[in-house]
Each structure stands twice: as C-alpha cells, then as structure tokens.
Amino acid sequence: MIPIPSTIYFIKPIESPHELDESFPVMNQLRTDLTLDTYRELVAAMRPQGYELYALYADDAIVSLAGIELRVNLYLEKYVFIYDLVTCANHRSNGYGEMLLHFVHEYARDHSAKYVALESGLARTEAHRFYTDKMDYAITSYSFRKQL
C-alpha cells in the first residue's frame, strides 16, 4: 500500500508583487469588480493605513485569503477589522476559512485587540451562517453607505 501524502498547510503574509499577483484569482472571487491593476493600486494605497493580507496555502497553492487591519475607535476600542475573507470556490467546505479565521483571532489576541469585526453583504447567507453558527460571531449592527 502506497501512503498518501498529507496536505501541507501554512499561513503567510502576502508581501511581494509576485505574491500579490498570485493571490488575485482568489481575491477576485470575492471582489469581482476588481481588475489586477486596480487590486495592485488599492492594496498599495491601503498598506500605509495598516492593511495586511494573509494567505492560507495548501500544498503551495493559495486557497484562502484574509485582508485585515488593526484599528481603534470609540465603541470597539482596539480591534481587528476583516476587510476580506475568501476561500477559492473549488476548495470551500474543507475548513480553510475556519483555519484562517482562527489565525486572525490569534493575531488579534497577540495585538491586545478586544474584538474581531467584519461586514458581510446581505445576500451572503451561507457566509452569515458560517460566522454565526460555526465561528460564534454576533450580528450587532447594520452597515450603511451612500454612493457619491
């Protein structure tokens, strides 16, 4: 009997331009309006504000991404905001999003944050079930915006 090699998982920050380009096909599944050029420009503009992008790799391929920022405000005090959390469509339901979210929770604890917060589109009911039922997040508010 031939042993089946186990999948090797690791999480690392996306830092180089090559890594950013490599992450685009996964991010584009969540942020469908982005082009590669716009993705590069926006990430470059967000980094000075504290935006960090982490990738979960399975056997050297990016399968999940989390874009986060450590923030402070008057109602949550110090917290980590998740801008982006996405798992590649053909890798969903394998626990990758959960692994990456646990990583974000540890990141928050390591940085003395009190909360991890995120927003999710109204139509993303499966994502909402994941956050509330599996990851024990509470729905605490609505998010409003006005296009100018």
Rank of each mutant, 00 (worst) to 15 (best):
F10R: 13
I11S: 04
I11V: 10
I11H: 09
K12P: 02
P13D: 09
P13H: 11
P13N: 08
I14M: 07
E15H: 11
S16Q: 12
S16W: 09
S16E: 00
P17T: 12
H18I: 13
P25R: 01
P25G: 05
V26N: 11
V26L: 01
M27G: 11
M27I: 14
N28V: 04
N28K: 07
N28C: 09
N28E: 09
Q29F: 11
Q29L: 07
Q29N: 07
R31Q: 14
L34K: 01
L34H: 07
L34S: 05
L34I: 03
T35I: 04
T35P: 15
D37L: 09
D37H: 08
T38Y: 08
T38N: 11
Y39Q: 00
R40F: 05
R40A: 05
E41H: 12
E41F: 09
L42F: 07
L42P: 14
L42Q: 15
A44K: 03
M46H: 10
M46A: 13
M46R: 14
M46C: 03
Q49M: 06
G50W: 04
Y51W: 15
E52F: 11
E52V: 03
L53N: 00
L53T: 05
L53A: 05
A55C: 11
Y57H: 09
Y57L: 02
Y57P: 01
A58D: 00
D59R: 14
D60E: 13
D60H: 13
I62Q: 08
I62S: 07
V63M: 03
L65I: 10
A66N: 11
I68W: 13
I68F: 12
L70Q: 15
R71N: 12
V72T: 14
N73R: 05
N73V: 02
L74S: 12
L74G: 10
Y75Q: 02
Y75S: 12
Y75H: 10
Y75R: 08
K78G: 08
Y79L: 07
Y79R: 01
Y79F: 15
Y79I: 02
Y79W: 10
V80H: 08
V80P: 08
F81L: 05
I82T: 14
I82P: 07
Y83I: 07
L85I: 14
V86D: 04
V86M: 07
C88L: 01
C88R: 08
A89C: 00
N90G: 00
H91Q: 12
S93T: 10
N94M: 00
G95K: 07
G95W: 06
G95N: 15
G95L: 00
G95A: 06
G97S: 02
G97M: 02
G97L: 04
E98V: 00
E98M: 01
L101V: 03
V104I: 06
Y107V: 03
H111Y: 10
S112Q: 11
L118Y: 07
S120I: 00
S120Y: 00
G121W: 02
G121C: 01
L122S: 15
A123S: 12
R124F: 04
H128T: 04
H128V: 03
R129H: 10
R129Y: 13
F130S: 10
F130L: 12
Y131C: 01
T132S: 12
K134M: 02
D136M: 06
D136Y: 12
D136P: 10
Y137W: 15
Y137L: 06
A138M: 03
